[in-house]
Design a protein around this nucleic acid. Structure first.
Lengths: 374, 374
DNA sequence: TTGTAGGCGTTATCAT
DNA sequence: ATGATAACGCCTACAA
């Protein structure tokens, strides 16, 4: 007993001698080796399992690791060419940060990354391209995810000379340097029309998004609209478009009054606006004595109402943050870990419909009835 | 001309010889030194400016840096004991992520960090304590910020043995291991009462937050409520409390009907609920023919309506993400860079009132009139 | 099964 | 003013 105590004291002395004054610097692999009475390589191998270690030795090592609270130094590992297990998430802060939609991408990326064993380094500065360059060049991160991608995205355009793999969640025009993952919004436009047409709707109102989004990231909002309009023309469906507006300053009262006044009113709404605007329209419809879906069907596209408080459930062809983020991380990880070339890849996800009962069928009979009742 | 071309070719050959097959690995300081025809230490000093370098040499170095696109390797720098310029931001994902309030803390921290020269490593996993341990022990980050802090916060309780400085935005019970920055909600409670009392209000309704918040992070929501109630008693102000509710399932119609029915109704509301709930109450007040602030004053406390769409502007004693985050980062940076000891520090910020016209004065005369009219 | 030694890219120290 | 070199902590090829 005494000998052990003495031995222990001696060891402490050695330690103190090694690092005399400094306030106990972090334990390194050497300290563990000394504590366990083995060599550093034994410690390394015991931890990595890359070669067999006797149970006895292994136990000693683990005990020492535990005792000293040893964690390998991240920098030193990287110097050995080992990945940093960190990805950069570029999300330049623009005006409208409070949308649930945006937030969801954020969190789902973080979640998917963590599940793949990566931490997330957040880049929110205004000079996104430079920030990305800095963290990729310095090997701080293993890869890059671009969020809130515009049609004409500077980051995507520069991604060719980032020194790490890069993936955009979105579909920018210039994307030779990165992979892209997005929903197929052209298909979504067609599908929206077909969905309503096949349920008997022949005249629909289109509730526009706010103008800023059309100007900025046409890719997503504009593509849907154009594809939808062109399909409607093809199938002979009439589309009445809402007027333009900035921010949330949409005149829902006027919209409902003007659009749903006469007997020949639309039987459905295709919505591209956010939760606030749509909620106000729903409220006005109710005031006007029109109920959903009996009098007016509502189909919302490119929105994300899971996180929003809607005045009633709305059938939706939503954006799919969880799906896209997961897919993006999958691709990125394959590029990082297996060196798969993903530059220029584009994966467009088929749009899905979440039925929430706000779209009703109009049978030919009913339609005839309506026409007759005029 | 030909000689220059030849020389260039020769150099290329040398480069190719140096790194024969590998797909052009990232340029290091050695490559720059070779390219510039100087030693590595010269390159290092030319870049850091820590000793004087002749203009000629400096130019050569800069040219080489430019040509090769050299950026120092972050890991190698850290090995030399240099800070990583990254802080960890711990924000465990709970249910109610979509509140503007929450989001604001997030982004303001990122912004403040960037302004201080730090990147932000996001930790959103369920096992926050372990994640923090991992990134601090491995020297991946220089410091830690805790967000969404509960009264009984596990992370704050464990912060004593994190190997890096840590600061909580919030005021947990156990905080010996970290610094805390928060609003003085006890003071806020008193101030809310005084503010209304001094404007003549003698009977107010208190609109509770959802129950989950009371249970979870009492620190913030409960302290305000208790302090407010006790001050009201002191000054002889009557407080009518709303009933409890989960999530957003608050019955605004009933609340307004029951609370504002008779002539002796409250002249003001102190609100602690979120934007949705308050909006519904405002709507019902309007339906009941009561206008704000003429008939009912509204003061909201501990909310953050800057990012929310309110049906009318509401005078607020808001949480102050921008202020708290800035302050927190200031403290954290001083701990990181000057080694200032911040463990156990608590900085409580005085609450501020944002006047938005939803609180009106009731003159003694008016009050007399009201009483008389009964 | 275990130990030794070299090297990753940078910077500080010492030498020129 | 500049160059050579050791050291940082870790990993692994090689030797024993």
């Amino acid at each position: 007993m005494q000998r052990i105590a003495a031995l222990k004291d001696a060891k402490d002395d050695v330690e103190n001698a090694g690092k005399p004054k400094e306030a106990m610097t972090m334990a390194g692999i050497k300290d563990v080796a000394r504590e366990a009475g083995v060599s550093v390589s034994t410690v390394s191998y015991a931890l990595s399992g890359k070669r067999s270690i006797s149970a006895k030795t292994s136990d000693k090592v683990m005990a020492a690791v535990e005792k000293l609270g040893y964690t390998p130094d991240a920098s030193a590992r990287k110097m050995r060419g080992i990945r940093s297990q960190v990805i950069a998430l570029s999300a330049p802060i623009r005006g409208d940060i409070n949308q649930a939609k945006y937030n969801a991408y954020f969190l789902h990326t973080a979640w998917a990354a963590r599940n793949a064993g990566y931490d997330v380094l957040l880049l929110t500065g205004p000079d996104a391209v430079n920030d990305i360059r800095r963290v990729t060049q310095s090997n701080l991160v293993d890869g890059v995810v671009l969020l809130d991608v515009e049609q004409d995205d500077e980051r995507a355009a520069s991604s060719g000379d980032f020194s790490k793999p890069c993936i955009a969640i979105g579909y920018p025009q210039a994307h030779e340097g990165c992979a892209c993952v997005d929903i197929d919004f052209a298909e979504a436009g067609r599908k929206a029309v077909d969905f309503l047409f096949d349920k008997g709707h022949r005249k629909v109102a289109f509730l526009r998004n706010n103008e800023a989004d059309y100007e900025r990231r046409s890719g997503y909002v504009v593509i849907f609209r154009e594809s939808m309009l062109s399909r409607a023309k093809e199938r002979g469906m009439t589309v009445v478009e809402s007027s333009r507006y900035e921010d949330d300053r949409f005149d829902a009262i006027r919209f409902v009054r003007e659009t749903f006044a006469d007997e020949d009113r639309p039987t459905a709404i295709i919505n591209q606006a956010n939760a606030n605007v749509l909620n106000r329209v729903l409220q006005e419809l109710s005031v006007a004595g029109l109920s959903v879906p009996e009098d007016v069907s509502v189909l919302s596209c490119g929105t994300y109402f899971d996180g929003e408080l809607m005045s009633r459930p709305i059938t939706e062809m939503p954006v799919m943050p969880e799906k896209l983020c997961l897919q993006a991380m999958g691709l990125l990880v394959s590029a990082i870990e297996q060196g798969v070339k993903i530059k220029g890849d584009v994966e467009l996800e088929a749009p899905a419909v979440k039925l929430r009962g706000s779209v009703a069928e109009i049978s030919p009979g009913e339609r005839a009835l309506k026409v007759a009742s005029r």
